[in-house]
């Protein structure tokens, strides 16, 4: 299952936030990936803010990316708001690409 999970994250790394030009994994928008042979792949993800302009497009794109990478698996994407996203969830490279690495002390 770990291999499947890695491939899910790899697929999600190809989905970018169109405003920030950073992928959603690096932004820390992907909270959890669960792989179950019966239930398929379940992804919990969030957005930078409720009412985000890409609130419709981004989850759909995430689902499509994973479905294309793993066509034999059913994929479900759930948007969650708790815990809310904060900039501290970005990884080092994402923060640096946005020019705020020092500001976040990472």
């Amino acid at each position: 299952m770990t291999e499947i999970t890695d491939r899910v994250y790899e697929a999600l790394s190809g989905v970018w936030d169109p405003e920030l030009a950073v992928d959603i994994v690096s932004l820390g928008l992907v909270y959890d990936v669960r792989v179950d042979e019966d239930d398929g792949i379940e992804i919990d993800m969030t957005l930078t803010t409720p009412g985000c302009p890409v609130s419709d497009a981004l989850p759909a794109e995430a689902r499509r990316a994973v479905a294309e990478a793993l066509p034999q698996w059913p994929v479900r994407v759930e948007i969650v708001w708790d815990p809310p996203w904060t900039p501290e969830r970005m990884n080092v490279d994402a923060a640096r690409s946005l020019g705020v690495g020092r500001r976040l002390r990472i």
Binding site: D23, N91, V92, A94
Partner: peptide, 12 residues
């Protein structure tokens, strides 16, 4: 083209 974005892999 526009600048390449960060693709930094899985969240640490």
């Amino acid at each position: 083209p526009t600048p390449e974005p960060a693709t930094a892999g899985r969240q640490a």
